[in-house]
């Protein structure tokens, strides 16, 4: 059986706790092992100290088709220092032992398949992973994966896009656990200056179908506090920020301690924007 020392449904509990505080969740992403294991651990700690509610760690893949240049570059940095899925899970174990925040892993499907679905999910759970996002695994292809995730108590977080039909959206909402990952735009990951025109409309449409049964978090192109507060005020339960943070890592390869300071400060201001009462 999966590791029982780790509480189940911590993602759901976190969203519940934040609802009570009238706050949205700030989900902060970094690519695992970028630019090296030691810096990555320090940067992850900075996210948590800055106030990230949920930490999302990416497993780098050689062919990340849903990612823009910022995360592509971070994946290449991580892979070139020999990062493997198992090493990342070990690092998450270190972090989850020390900090009580929920952890989500993002991985393309092939590295998971290569390890074996059951073995990957069991390892993930033992390392303190609460949920998993697989950007190239739509619900239609994921029956076995979802069954194994349920068995190992790892939440399956599916994605919805602005063009996902209502029929599909119902299925995706029904199959998702932890939260639904709403892609805010047509495109790949990457920081944008402004929120996409479809974003807020998509939030309202998805929220009305979700009927409070599952939290909805918005990602892709969310890089600034104004974006975060706009999606939270439109009803989203969480905002996911990735490339804007990974860019800080990439811009401070020569002065990693400066990256930590910057990350912490950025996360603080993003977190502040999730507080409905102060907006």
């Amino acid at each position: 059986m999966p590791n029982t020392s780790h509480d189940d449904d911590r993602i759901e509990a976190k969203f519940g706790e934040l609802r009570g505080l009238r706050e949205g969740a700030l989900i902060a992403y970094l690519t695992g092992g970028d630019p090296d294991p030691k810096t990555f651990l320090a940067n992850s700690t900075a996210l948590i100290e800055g106030g990230a509610d949920i930490v999302e760690i990416g497993i780098p893949f050689s062919d990340p088709i849903a990612d823009g240049p910022v995360i592509q570059a971070s994946s290449m940095r991580a892979l070139s220092n020999g990062t493997t899925p198992l090493r990342i899970l070990d690092m998450i174990r270190e972090l989850s032992t020390e900090f009580p925040v929920p952890f989500v892993v993002l991985s393309y499907y092939n590295p998971i398949l290569a390890m074996g679905l059951g073995r990957f999910l069991q390892k993930a759970r033992e390392s303190g992973v609460d949920g998993i996002v697989v950007p190239d695994l739509p619900v239609e292809e994921s029956e076995e994966f979802r069954n194994l995730s349920l068995k190992h108590n790892v939440d399956t977080i599916y994605l919805a896009a602005p063009n996902t039909s209502r029929t599909r959206l119902r299925t995706v909402l029904d199959k998702s656990k932890g939260f639904l990952y709403l892609v805010s735009l047509y495109g790949v990951t990457g920081p944008r200056d402004s929120l996409s025109p479809q974003a807020l409309e998509a939030v309202r449409a998805v929220k009305s179908l979700a009927r409070g049964k599952i939290p909805v978090s918005v990602g892709f192109g969310i890089s600034q506090p104004e974006h975060v507060s706009a999606v939270i005020q439109s009803g989203a339960d969480g905002a996911i920020v990735g490339s804007a943070l990974v860019r800080i890592v990439g811009n401070h390869l020569d002065d990693p301690s400066d990256a930590e300071t910057q990350l912490k400060k950025t996360v603080q201001s993003l977190k502040e924007a999730t507080r409905l009462s102060s907006n």
Partner: peptide, 8 residues
């Protein structure tokens, strides 16, 4: 095996 945006 594609991102959700390509399903439609």
């Amino acid at each position: 095996y594609v991102p959700e945006t390509l399903m439609e």
